[in-house]
Design a protein around this nucleic acid. Structure first.
Lengths: 256, 256
DNA sequence: CGTGATCTTGATGCTCATCAAGGCTAGTGG
DNA sequence: CCACTAGCCTTGATGAGCATCAAGATCACG
């Protein structure tokens, strides 16, 4: 039944957000209620669509990018499930879906996140996500300014793996890879052709495998070594989030 | 007398902050008092010093940078007079003075900036500065990802001119330029040698002049054209800041 | 007047962009 | 079922852009 499938998707959206936010701070019961409420306000967008701001991405991949006057594109960051997407507002940026995506409208969450008294947990989580967003921009600047094409590709793959893994969407050596080589080129400041040759070099050396939407990192340590990759810091925890995730799963699950 | 010179510097620091913040929002009397109080807490640092965070830079230039394991450096942004400097805290960054600098310790300002009820003006100004900081990071990503060395140099010069001009430290075709070619290379992701050759090309073509700490932009329009430079948006004004600056100047000036 | 930092210049070659063309796959309409 | 198309991936050839190495010139300063 359609409504059951919808409820299932909402439940997964809620779990995802609880996992992402809960890893950054302890969430109270009312925080979880807000998350649950947000999870029910699902909206789908097709690949290539411009996304509105002030939402949370819950499935699919998006990009923050700018298109220059001569048509050249630069991708600033990838938005992955669990990430908030601050649309337009800031600095001549557009938010574009790279795959079919689902978002939830979350005015309650964004508002609560400003209230560090009533919703200390959510506020802390959102602040942590803002900080991380900046950290990722800085890492991207280093990639573009100081790494070779070969290093850039390895570095980006590791970053994506880490960000996906912490919301349960990647394993240590395997991650979904829906990006076309053109999109990778737009992010890494390279030409499509050179992205292709760079991937082949990594393949030839047995470091990665890329096929049909899946990337396999055969030797993550070697990859990290060659590009001096620094993993994102493990977040501090003020309470055990695992239990919370389960509580939310129970709360949001479709009634049997 | 020493104390008079100090008072003069504090007065200039206050005017600078009032001009920068006031251009971003209307400042109340109590906002100006906070600024004045902060301006009296001057501290000097010599070139090369690591700067502490949560301060406002009031004279000199600083950089936010990261040093990689192989010794390569990447500068993320330049901190100019009037800019807040958020030290360490975020994302493996260090804040380093590039010239002798003066900062003011401003716990009151940072605290007030969080209180959007009592200090709406300051809060709005700080929020605008945060947004602009991100905008500048994105511009830097475009420079590194999609512009040639020649374009990068032109783009950076224009950005620095605009940011300095609005606090009265640059003219349309003239700005202080205390950066060494090595520092420019660290920012633009180039080798020192190539920075040198790039500057010479711009010189040969009559676009710029660089000597003894001063940069002259002979044809700013041509420079903007060649790198598709987009000026920072003119800030909205909720009240006339000019009057406020004068009020503060009177308030902070050493008694005759 | 020497000493270190900064700027400048030349020579050489790697990295990457560009142009051009061909192949592979999935979806579309006859 | 078979062209036909459109997107994406792949490959080769060529040259521009930039790094690197090395050395000399200039400047700032004690």
């Amino acid at each position: 039944m359609v409504s059951e499938r919808l409820a299932g998707r909402a439940a997964r959206a809620g779990e995802l957000m609880a996992r992402r936010f809960g890893a950054l701070s302890g969430l109270s019961g009312s925080d979880l209620e807000l998350i649950e409420a947000a999870a029910r306000r699902l909206e789908s967008h097709s690949a290539g669509a411009d996304l509105p701001g002030r939402r949370i991405l819950v499935s699919g991949w998006a990009s923050r990018r700018r298109v220059m006057s001569d048509g050249a594109r630069q991708i600033f960051s990838f938005v992955l499930p669990g990430d908030p997407c601050e649309g337009r507002r800031r600095g001549a940026v557009s938010l574009v879906a790279l795959t079919p995506v689902e978002t939830v409208e979350a005015p309650g969450l964004f508002q609560a996140a400003e209230d560090s008294l009533l919703h200390a947990g959510l506020a802390e989580a959102f602040e942590a996500m803002r900080e991380e967003e900046e950290r990722l921009l800085l890492d991207h600047i280093v990639r573009l300014g100081r790494l070779t094409a070969y290093e850039r590709m390895a570095h980006l793959l590791l970053e994506l793996r880490d960000r996906l893994a912490r919301v349960g969407l990647a394993e240590e050596r395997r991650l979904p890879m829906p990006l076309t080589q053109e999109t990778l080129a737009d992010a890494l400041g390279l030409s499509i052709v050179h992205v292709n040759r760079t991937i082949q070099q990594l393949r030839r050396e047995g470091l990665i495998e890329l096929r049909s939407g899946i990337a396999v990192l055969h030797d993550p340590d070697a990859l990290a070594e060659l590009c001096a990759y620094e993993p994102l810091r493990a977040p501090r925890r003020t309470s055990g989030p695992a239990a919370n995730v389960e509580a939310l799963a129970r709360a949001t699950a479709p009634l049997a």
